[in-house]
Amino acid sequence: MKPAIKRILFFVIVIGLWQLGSKAGLWSEILLPSPVSVFEALVTGIQDKTLIYDLIASFKRLIVGLAIALAIGTSLGILLAKSKTADDTIGSLVLAFQSVPSIVWLPLAIMWFGLGESAIIFVVILGGTFVMTLNVRVGIKNVSPLYIKAARTMGSSGLDLFIKVILPASVPYLVTGSRLAWAFAWRALMAGELLSTGPGLGYTLRYASDFGNMSLVIGVMVIIGVIGAVVDQLIFQRIEKSVIRRWGLDS
């Protein structure tokens, strides 16, 4: 059996059992609504467009935050790879920041920017930046000396060497860094939205919970999970695989 078919079959069985359990009254509909109720809540949300607006709002924050995170992360990674002093000082700070879940910055961000877009985007940026930094740093440091030597014998040096050889050679790490930055940023965004004002997927999740609409809570959770998995597997893992193959790292 193909993995894809196995996977579909697995989900069909899980959802089927869940539905059967709900029907048989094994648990209360208030604690765990049935798949059918979740589906209905999703359909309603899409029909009255609230979920659509939420998705658009969430993605806008994510794209802005992630783009800034990738830009800062790349620049900082290059700096750490190129300057030993920066690596010894800023490098240790980056490691410390990376081990702090970015949502803990939210209280400070709210103080600085007020409770709004900027505070959430700030948290998203912090979520994605440091993991990108660390990957770019390692990527540049790991460029095969052979490529550098070869390029130098062909008259390349300085900025030309960096842009034409060192950066492209570290692309596999840039891709991995971006994939992880996306994953961290996505989590940070949801956490931030849970604690702030709407629209947004996270905000609707909390709003639904406040009004005891458990079907919508689970519905939004499903959307968050599906988006996370689809972007990771269909976009990033594919790019990563083809890059690893082309860069000859799969031997």
Partner: peptide, 16 residues
């Protein structure tokens, strides 16, 4: 310099 070309044991051609 380009007046001296070099070939290494591992072909150092760029995979990208």
């Amino acid at each position: 310099g380009k007046d001296r070309g070099m070939v290494f044991q591992q072909a150092a051609i760029f995979p990208w």
